[in-house]
């Protein structure tokens, strides 16, 4: 029988197109309603500025106003270091904990606990602990290390601390999940081949952990980039921690300029997309396959 004589349905089925594909529909509809529609709506709104300005008027206004434009940079200098620190701390901990460790469950629970607290509780804790009359400053003053309290909240440091406390658990879980899948025999094999501990980490474990590290970094960055509550509560929302989400909030709910707020949301999405795309581009050049050394 020639290729064309076979029924269309059979040929489509070979390419994975059959009735089962209808099952994708509910998920596709949900995604459409939750993501695609608001995005398209927001994009449309952003190019319909108030007061009959030109189509890209909101974008021009955002980028020509230094107070607004600087929010991109203020957010990036929070989000990128926070993501780097969270993932950076996760790597050695995950490396140590990937094998059998005593009380692993307890340790993991303790490390992951902060994620369950929520930003508001963490912010309150930070103020009580690191604030001007918090225990930390009182302790440092009591032992005579400092004369006046250190300013650790309501500025960049406070927001960074909050981002690390709430973001680290997620990073650790992601990196640990990936590292646990690395066959311990690979490191043993590397040892018998003459590689010392640091060489084993550099040439075997780290390359195999990198895909997990990449994903953890991306998620940590995206989560930190949309920081809002802690930037207000433990930051300085009028100054150094006026992040881009605050700019969007003020446009929408203080000035009721929805088109401008939509434009800021679009800019936010574009910046995140650019960073994520850049990281994926780097990742594409790295090994991505199995983390076991053969049949297990």
């Amino acid at each position: 029988m020639s290729e064309h004589a076979r029924p269309l349905r059979e040929r489509l089925a070979e390419r994975g197109i059959d009735r089962v594909l209808w099952l994708v529909l509910p998920a596709a509809a949900l995604l459409g309603m939750l993501f695609v529609y608001p995005f398209v709506y927001g994009l449309g709104l952003s190019v319909q500025p108030n007061e009959g300005a030109p189509v890209i008027g909101n974008y021009v206004r955002f980028f020509s106003d230094d107070f607004e434009r600087s929010t991109i940079w203020k957010t990036l200098v929070l989000a990128i270091p926070a993501a780097v620190v969270n993932v950076g701390i996760s790597i050695p901990i995950a490396y140590k904990m990937r094998g059998p460790v005593r009380n692993k469950r307890l340790i993991t629970t303790l490390l992951v606990m902060p994620a369950t607290l929520g930003t508001v509780l963490v912010a309150e804790g930070l103020i009580r602990y690191f604030g001007p009359i918090g225990w930390f400053n009182q302790f440092l003053m009591a032992i005579g290390l400092i004369d006046g309290p250190l300013r650790l909240t309501h500025n960049y440091v406070g927001v960074m601390a909050s981002l690390i406390i709430t973001g680290f658990p997620l990073s650790l879980l992601l990196v640990l999940g990936h590292a646990s899948g690395i066959d311990p025999d690979l490191e043993r094999a590397a040892a018998t081949l003459g590689a010392g501990p640091s060489e084993r980490f550099r040439r075997v474990v780290l390359p195999l952990m990198l895909p997990g590290i990449t994903i953890a970094f991306i998620l940590a960055f995206v989560a930190a980039f949309s920081v809002f509550p802690s930037a207000v509560m433990v930051g300085n929302p009028a100054g150094e921690t006026r992040v881009i989400s605050i700019a969007a909030y003020q446009a929408a709910f203080e000035r009721f300029d929805y088109p401008m707020a939509s434009a800021i949301a679009m800019i936010m999405a574009a910046v995140q997309f650019a960073i994520v795309a850049f990281v994926f581009l780097l990742r594409g050049r790295l090994y991505r396959g199995s983390t076991s050394g053969g049949k297990g």
């Binding site: 025999d185 094999a189 053969g294």
Partner: peptide, 20 residues
Amino acid sequence: LPPERRRFGMVFQNYALFPH
């Protein structure tokens, strides 16, 4: 001596080839 200084070769049951 640590394993890396013994100059032995080892072959594992699950091959333990570096997948990357």
